[in-house]
Every structure is written in structure tokens, then in C-alpha cells.
């Protein structure tokens, strides 16, 4: 095979054949080595969480990737291809330049206090007077899970990235991860008595909250989410039927124990 090995000779056929073979081998090894090196570089440059989210986003069904402005009725049939990074979306800037109306404290029976902004993965953000923000799970998200058996909040000093893992909940043996709506450092956490929350010092205040849902678009988004949930809860043969009147129960999983909650949580919390 190689010079010095019995049977090798410097004939044209031998050299061409082995050159092609070793070129292929070198190509395969190089590609793997480059992939490993790039993966290491992604970690050292803190790009890993963003890549994980992009991969997650790619696996989401189309219904979960509708543009926020499609949901709010400002445009029709627009799907997000940008991983919900609205801060870097020119179309979003253009739309949000228009004044948005203040939101209601209640929408479809869910508590949506004024002053809060919302992430598509059902986390709320509440700017504080000291420049920090509080983040937590919104009312619809909380009711979809009910009482979790375990809550894993990040430790103080942990770094969060937008669309990276915010915190994890466990229910019925299934782990549910909630996406972080902001980038920054966790400076305090709240337990069950105060309602689970994280207090975060923002990494870059200039980024602002353009990527978060606000004002009147929250109602449209909630309606869409309820439709999606109803569709997932409905038997395949039946159509969607939205409840007319009444108030949402505190724990949806108790009301629909036979539903495929694993799938529903995946869709609602944007986990493919």
C-alpha cells in the first residue's frame, strides 16, 4: 500500500489509485476535523446557545413560526425565517414605528398586567425602575403546565442569552424548557411564594425590547395560541371549537388528562 510495503511499486496505476484513495480519505478526515474545530469555536465565542435555538427553530412546525405581525393581522401569510430575532428584522422596525395601543390587564380570561412584554415562548418581561428586568412564565404558560413537580432556575450570576435556555420545569416526568426572553446576568430569583421569576441585569440595554410582543398584538397572539392549543387538544376527526364564555381553569393538564401534553408543551414552548 505504501512505499516499503511488500507488493508496492512505483507504477503509474499504483500511484494514481492510491493518490485518489488518500485524497478521499484526507477529504473525509478534514471535513470532520473542521466540523469539530468550528463547534469548539462556537462554544468559546458563546454562539452555542444561538445555534441551538436556530436548530430548534428549524424543527418547529409552520404554525409555530408565524410572524408576529401576521398574528396581529397587520400582514397576511408571513412566516418568520429569522428565529424570532425581531430586533434584527427591518420589517419589524417598520411596523413598530407606528404607535401601539396600551394593552388590557385581562385577555380571554388570562392575566396580562400592563407594562409587561411577552416572548413567543410564553415568558414575560417586566422592566424595573433600576434598569433591570424581571422575567417569568406567563399566565397561559402556567395554566398549561399546572403545578410543576420541579423547577430548575439558573443560579445567581448565570448568563442568559435571548432564545437560550431560561429555566426548566418538570411535570409528569417530562422536562420543559422555557426560552429566555432577554440576554443578561441573573441577579436574583423568586421562589414559589413570590411566583417563580428571575431578575436580570441586561447585557445590552440598547438592544431594547423590539423582539418582544407588546401592546395590541398580545391579544392576537393569545388568540392564535389558544387556537393552536384547541387544535392539539381536539380529537383528529373533530374540528376546532373555541369555548364561548367562561374562565380558563388553573391547570389544563387536569382538564385534559388524555391529551398528548408532551407534544402540546413542545409546540407552545417552541421546543421541536
Amino acid at each position: 500500500m505504501l512505499p516499503g510495503i511488500s507488493g508496492f511499486d512505483w507504477s503509474v496505476g499504483h500511484v494514481i489509485f492510491l493518490a485518489i484513495f488518500f485524497s478521499v480519505l484526507a477529504c473525509v478526515i478534514t471535513v470532520i476535523a473542521v466540523a469539530i474545530l468550528k463547534a469548539v469555536r462556537d462554544f468559546t465565542k458563546h454562539k452555542a446557545e444561538a445555534i441551538c435555538w436556530d436548530e430548534e427553530f428549524r424543527g418547529l412546525p409552520l404554525s409555530a413560526r408565524r410572524c408576529r405581525h401576521d398574528i396581529s393581522g397587520r400582514v397576511a401569510g408571513r412566516t418568520c425565517t429569522n428565529g424570532f430575532k425581531c430586533s434584527h428584522c427591518a420589517f419589524n422596525d417598520e411596523i413598530l414605528a407606528k404607535e401601539t395601543a396600551p394593552q388590557d390587564a385581562h385577555a380571554f380570561g388570562f392575566e396580562m398586567p400592563p407594562g409587561r412584554l411577552y416572548h413567543r415562548g410564553h415568558a414575560w418581561v417586566e422592566p424595573q425602575n433600576d434598569g433591570t428586568v424581571k422575567i417569568g412564565l406567563d399566565d397561559l404558560g402556567s395554566r398549561l403546565i399546572g403545578e410543576p413537580s420541579k423547577v430548575e432556575l439558573p443560579e445567581r450570576g448565570s448568563h442568559l442569552q435571548i432564545n437560550g435556555v431560561g429555566w426548566r420545569l418538570t411535570k409528569g416526568g417530562r422536562s420543559i424548557r422555557v426560552l429566555s426572553p432577554v440576554a443578561g446576568t441573573v441577579i436574583a430569583t423568586g421562589g414559589p411564594q413570590e411566583g417563580w421569576y428571575l431578575k436580570v441585569k441586561l447585557e445590552d440595554a440598547k438592544t431594547g425590547f423590539r423582539h418582544l410582543l407588546q401592546g395590541e398584538e398580545i391579544r392576537s397572539w393569545l388568540l392564535q395560541e389558544m387556537e393552536r392549543i384547541q387544535r392539539l387538544l381536539s380529537p383528529p376527526a373533530a374540528g376546532i371549537s373555541l369555548a364561548d364564555g367562561g374562565v380558563p381553569v388553573p391547570d389544563f393538564t387536569m382538564a385534559y388528562p388524555d391529551a398528548d401534553w408532551d407534544e402540546i408543551w413542545g409546540e407552545v414552548f417552541l421546543e421541536s
Binding site: V31, V34, A35, D42, I51, C52
Partner: peptide, 20 residues
């Protein structure tokens, strides 16, 4: 995360493997 990031980087190179 490390598996997913490696998968992402490897996936980007699948064109090279397709040619080989």
C-alpha cells in the same frame, strides 16, 4: 448543546460528503 452544535457544523458540510 455540544452534540447539537457539532451536528449543526457537520450538517453544514454535508454537501462535501455528498460529492465524495
Amino acid at each position: 448543546p455540544s452534540f447539537l452544535v457539532f451536528e449543526f457544523e457537520l450538517h453544514k458540510m454535508m454537501g462535501a460528503f455528498a460529492v465524495v
